[in-house]
């Protein structure tokens, strides 16, 4: 199970990194959303994995519970990352509407890169 969770975190991170390295704002936002999934799962998993032990106190005597603290932290993190995504989307949308372009690199940098890379496909 641990491997499943860890590899999922890894896959989401890899996809997220690839997307934030793209040149368009929308892809970058998607990438950041994937990265926040990965981070949230990672944080949640820092309480270690356990099955059928929700941190809701049982009225029937002794029981085992999973670690509640990371869950509480991740809960707010999920909501906050939504807020962050929303702000980014709005800024990207504004930038696109004002400049007709949703590139994330500055114009002269793009030219330099072209010059330095020796052409592109």
């Amino acid at each position: 199970m641990e491997f499943i969770v860890a590899s999922s975190v890894g896959a989401l991170t890899a996809a997220g990194i690839y997307l934030i390295l793209r040149l368009r704002a929308f892809s970058t936002i998607l990438g950041l959303a994937l990265l926040s999934y990965a981070v949230n799962i990672f944080l949640f998993a820092s309480g270690r994995l356990s099955i059928d032990m929700p941190p809701v106190l049982s009225p029937y005597g002794e029981a085992n519970y999973t670690d509640p603290l990371p869950q509480a932290l991740v809960l707010t993190a999920i909501v906050i990352s939504f807020g962050m995504t929303a702000v980014l989307v709005m800024v990207a949308l504004g930038a696109y509407l004002e400049s007709d372009d949703d590139r994330i690199d500055m114009a002269e940098a793009a030219e330099n890169a072209e010059y330095g890379a020796g052409g592109r496909e």
């Binding site: 641990e2 491997f3 969770v5 860890a6 590899s7 975190v9 890894g10 896959a11 989401l12 991170t13 890899a14 996809a15 997220g16 990194i17 690839y18 390295l21 793209r22 990965a38 990672f42 998993a45 820092s46 270690r48 994995l49 890379a117 592109r120």
Partner: peptide
């Protein structure tokens, strides 16, 4: 460039995944 980014992404993802596994 896409290959380069892919390599960076896979390296980063593998690192985070390994870290998560060790941690868990």
């Amino acid at each position: 460039r896409r290959i380069r980014d892919g390599v960076i992404a896979i390296a980063g993802g593998a690192g985070v995944g390994a870290l998560a596994l060790m941690f868990l």
